[in-house]
Design a protein around this nucleic acid. Structure first.
Lengths: 227, 227
DNA sequence: CATATAATTATACGCTTGCATAATTACCCG
DNA sequence: CGGGTAATTATGCAAGCGTATAATTATATG
């Protein structure tokens, strides 16, 4: 009676009536494929483009499968958000693996890594912004955001605590919040308006600002591979 | 044949069949009423809740009227975004109007005002985030965002330039970017996670951080009405 | 007070959305 | 090699979306 807006199988002709071929996969592979598809679509298209049907097509499956792995579309979006946040934190954290032992150098590398690609990226920001407004309505999503934020900040606070400074506990918390805010703000505008800043400018400004807040010269602590 | 999802007139019974009463208004009043309604809905519900029907109901008219004043729904949303940005910059300027003459005090007041209600507010952030993701697709919106961001930053840079410091021009730009980033980051997280910070904590941290970046004690420069 | 006209409402249409459910089929295990 | 079963597809549905257009009616104007 009315239009049916999902193409069952592009290859099979309607006259033969045979179904689309598929292969079974284990749960983890399918779930992450669906999550990746959702992330891609939100990143360059906004949440509006990430429909159940579009996600399924991007993942190479049919729409019904989404509800087989996620109780609802919102659950899928939550999982996608968590993966994005974790990925950004891990990208910043990865530089510490090969970092020297000096606390100042480790903090400097961490800050700088947070202020250049791939962390600073218009796509990533679009993704983040797309999820941000859902956060205000969805209690679980807000919890996910808070966890991600606090995790990153705790990481930062841990690096700050290692510095050879004599500060009391309350000051440590304030320092971590302030440094985190600088990084967040620079990340945000650097991602939204990439051409408004010169190459390496964000890193340099970030190092200087964080250093000023903590009372040390962070830029001088960077290993000799900055621009 | 199928359901019709807009209630024509709540007061008039279907049997009498009379129309909803209305009064004609001039174009400006109606346009701004529709814009206000759209802003309200986006602010606490995200763009998804700002449907044509919801906007019309909020504005006290019927959905068809929207298309009488705006060629398309997107045109209405653009107008709403512009109004939000204009309102924010005007609010920032209003703080300076009653500020004392001392440059340090003016800057301190400006920073503190940006880090408490009503600037720090979940609704305002929801609004900002809701429009932010549209910015990535709509060239006109991106231009509007850039103009707003640079205008605010120039305002901040002007306040910094008034300080009794001896700095070169390049340093001034970097300082403005860094201070803007701190304010942005604190505003963002304070709005998103209000209960994660104590009362007045954001202002205090912001003043301290901005002061550290600029090399002066801003908190001490605040007039005696901070908590 | 009559009339024109523009503002507003009412209605409808085609499309998309998320979700439920039935039908199929690839793969595991005996 | 032949079921069993769970993964996957196919189909359908009710609701909501933006938009187009026709019908009304409030108001200005003479």
């Amino acid at each position: 009676m009315q239009a049916y807006n999902y193409m069952p199988c592009p290859e099979s002709s309607p006259v033969t009536g045979d179904r689309r071929k598929f292969s079974r996969q284990n749960e983890d592979a399918r779930r992450s494929a669906l999550i990746d598809a959702a992330i891609d679509l939100v990143a360059d298209g906004g949440p509006a483009k990430a429909t159940v049907r579009a996600i399924a097509e991007q993942a190479g499956v049919t729409p019904g499968l989404i509800r087989h792995y996620f109780s609802t579309k919102e659950a899928l979006m939550r999982a996608a958000y968590a993966q994005v946040m974790d990925g950004m934190t891990e990208a910043s954290l990865a530089v510490l693996a090969t970092a020297p032992d000096r606390p100042e150098a480790r903090l400097a590398l961490f800050v700088a890594a947070s202020l250049r690609a791939p962390v600073v990226d218009g796509r990533a920001m679009g993704l983040w912004a797309g999820f941000l407004h859902q956060m205000r309505q969805d209690e679980e999503m807000r919890a996910a955001h808070e966890a991600g934020y606090l995790h990153y900040r705790d990481l930062l606070q841990g690096l700050i605590a290692e510095l050879p400074r004599a500060v009391v506990g309350a000051r440590l918390r304030a320092d971590a919040i302030a440094c985190n805010a600088v990084i967040d703000g620079l990340w945000l505008e650097g991602s939204a308006l990439p051409h408004a800043f010169a190459v390496g400018e964000l890193e340099q400004i970030g190092l200087q600002a964080v250093g000023a807040i903590l009372g040390l010269d962070l830029a001088a602590q960077m290993p000799e591979k900055d621009k």
